[in-house]
């Protein structure tokens, strides 16, 4: 059993929403209701659920990109919510994110070299030449070319942009990567490439993934453990094979039986 690298305990996040005829009243929505997860080093923990289940809120709260009401997030035993300013910023290089939409998550006015190198620049890692070298190596590793550093995002396809997003996250040599629906905007052939790339990189760089997804087929291929969320709560948690073969909760059973093509297969 490997050590726990990222642990969230009893996270609560409530959104207040305008309600009533003219929006004068308010109603509370619990996006995270007492959510606890533990990510083991070098493994992939998948968080699955339908829209509105709170899975993306969880991703953002884990990275301290969004404040939560109560609870704790421990990264290598350190409470992230207690860190501020420079301390939090320097911790952030260990915690990176890959976003869903490869079209919206890259600045269209920046060259690929700048996009991928920005993190190194901000964290002041290495000399200029070293940074450039790292960017080049990372781009080649994700299947792009050194010449691509001079290009702009619109010159790339969806799958290539997702590779750029992965390079940007991994160039900092993080320990934990939160992937928020990284393949759901991609064609199935491209999806397979990106999934395999993520798996290979995990092995090489000893990465730990939190993998947010609504696609249970994708999750089956990448995850070691799985957490099923519904309406802000964790309804089931376990090793991937156990949950898929013998789901304990009705909600998980419903989700699994709704996977298209399962009956026919």
């Amino acid at each position: 059993m490997s050590e726990v690298i990222l642990q969230a305990s009893n996270l609560v996040k409530t959104y207040t929403q305008a309600a009533g005829r003219f929006g004068f009243a308010t109603s509370q929505i619990k996006a995270l209701d007492d959510v606890s997860i533990a990510l083991k080093a070098g493994t992939t923990l998948a968080v699955v659920g339908e829209s509105g289940s709170g899975k993306s809120t969880l991703a953002r709260c884990l990275l301290q990109l969004q404040p939560f009401d109560s609870g704790k997030v421990l990264f290598q035993g350190q409470d992230l919510a207690k860190l501020h300013g420079d301390d939090l910023r320097s911790m952030r290089k260990h915690l990176q994110m890959v976003f869903q939409d490869p079209f919206a998550s890259l600045n269209p006015r920046m060259k690929i070299g700048e996009i991928v190198g920005e993190g190194l620049l901000i964290h002041g890692l290495g000399s200029k030449a070293e940074q450039q070298e790292k960017v080049h190596r990372m781009l080649q590793r994700v299947g792009l070319e050194v010449a691509d550093t001079q290009k702009y995002p619109h010159q790339f396809s969806g799958g290539q942009r997702q590779r750029i997003g992965i390079a940007r996250a991994l160039v900092l040599e993080p320990k934990v990567v939160v992937c928020d629906e990284p393949v759901s905007a991609l064609d199935v052939s491209v999806q397979a490439q990106i999934l395999l790339l993520l798996k290979d990189l995990q092995r090489e760089m000893n990465l730990s993934y939190v993998f947010i997804s609504h696609d249970l087929r994708v999750v089956r291929h990448i995850a070691d453990e799985i957490v099923v969320m519904n309406k802000g709560k964790i309804v089931e948690h376990g090793a991937v094979a156990d949950v898929y073969n013998a789901p304990q909760q009705t909600y998980t059973q419903q989700l699994l039986s709704a996977i298209p093509g399962r009956k026919a297969a």
């Binding site: 999806q191 397979a192 087929r217 089956r220 094979a241 297969a265």
Partner: peptide
Amino acid sequence: ACVPDAEG
């Protein structure tokens, strides 16, 4: 061959 299956 690209399509992930639910059985993994």
